[in-house]
């Protein structure tokens, strides 16, 4: 039996409503990446993570459990799970990712901060007030829950005097740039992805890289936010030969990740199909979204090396 749709969405929505996040990422844990970077708290310009990278290890751990529950008799108990979850955060017990996985996703955020510093930008971060943007809840059509949450996120940003928001992933970028303005009256934040900021600043590489990579565009960056050239420009300037797989740019093929929370098996099949396309274009692949990254990496196994774009950029542009 497939996962019960209503109860699964209900658990995610309850978590956002009660715990400000769909999965159990503690505020302290979510801010751990910034330790030692000396970023000021808040300020006019901040890096806002929206917790996507921090949450991916938990999503991966949760999906492993969901994959076991899907098509088994345990799926009958998800409804009971939702009931219990209101009192006890059951996802905290179900999804415990290894420390190493958490550290590798935190490393992406450190890389991005280093790149922004290298570009000469002065910025702060929100530490424990960096809240999840609600992207998954938006996709699932829980708009009332999202509207309440969006006001909390906006309030946290305003409390810290923020005017300019630098985002690190496509889903958060879309939420705070294109969705929130329709939900919050008087919304007045300027939002840019770090890739846009770096491309605008036209920074020069410190070390030339070589080799070729297949670029996997995020659906959200490519089709919702019209961001296509910036990652290619930054990679090419670093000396990397950018290769285009079939179905690229505005017509990029989805990694299947958005189906993970309800249909893990379908999501895995989509990811395998995309990896095959990328393998035909180059021996290595590059992503710019944490969901694409984890989903494609999992599907690729040891057949193809897939890295987040920040890993390449930090090697090329930072000292």
């Amino acid at each position: 039996m497939p996962l019960p749709i209503g109860d699964t969405i209900g658990i995610l929505a309850d978590n956002l409503r009660m715990r400000k996040s769909v999965l159990p990422v503690s505020a302290k844990g979510a801010a751990a990446w910034a330790k030692g970077l000396g970023l000021p708290r808040g300020g006019e310009t901040v890096i806002y993570t929206g917790l996507m990278y921090q949450m991916i290890p938990y999503i991966a751990a949760m999906n492993k459990v969901q994959g076991m529950i899907e098509d088994s008799r345990l799926a009958n108990f998800v409804g009971l799970g939702r009931y219990i979850n209101r009192a006890v955060n059951i996802s905290a017990f179900m999804a415990v990712p290894p420390k190493g996985t958490r550290q590798s996703f935190n490393r992406v955020l450190v890389n991005i901060a280093l790149l922004l510093k290298q570009a000469g930008l002065e910025f702060g971060c929100l530490y424990e007030d960096d809240l999840y943007s609600g992207a998954l809840i938006y996709d699932l059509g829980m708009d009332d829950v999202l509207a309440d949450h969006a006001r909390k996120v906006y309030g946290a940003l305003k409390k810290h005097g923020v005017r300019n928001v630098i985002t690190v992933d496509p889903h958060t970028t879309h939420m705070v740039r294109s969705v929130y303005p329709d939900l919050i009256k008087g919304y007045d934040l300027n939002v840019k992805s770090y890739l846009e900021v770096l491309a605008e600043r036209d920074i020069d590489p410190r070390a030339g890289l070589s080799g070729e990579v297949a670029v996997h565009d995020s659906c959200v960056y490519a089709r919702y936010e019209n961001m296509l050239n910036q990652p290619r420009t930054l990679l090419a300037k670093a000396g990397i030969a950018v290769r285009e797989p079939a179905d690229t740019g505005r017509f990029t093929l989805c990694c299947g990740g958005p189906a993970e929370s309800l249909f893990p098996k379908k999501a895995a099949a989509r990811a395998r199909a995309r990896v095959e396309q990328m393998k035909e274009a180059a021996p290595r692949g590059v992503t710019m979204c944490p969901i694409c990254y984890v989903n494609l990496q999992k599907a690729a196994g040891d057949r193809m090396i897939i890295e987040d774009i920040s890993s390449y950029l930090v090697r090329a542009y930072c000292k």
Binding site: D139, C219, R223, R250, F251, C254, A259, R270
Partner: peptide, 11 residues
């Protein structure tokens, strides 16, 4: 709920 909202159809 299977739709990925990837927007390929819309494009």
């Amino acid at each position: 709920y299977s739709c990925l909202l990837c927007g390929m159809c819309e494009a």
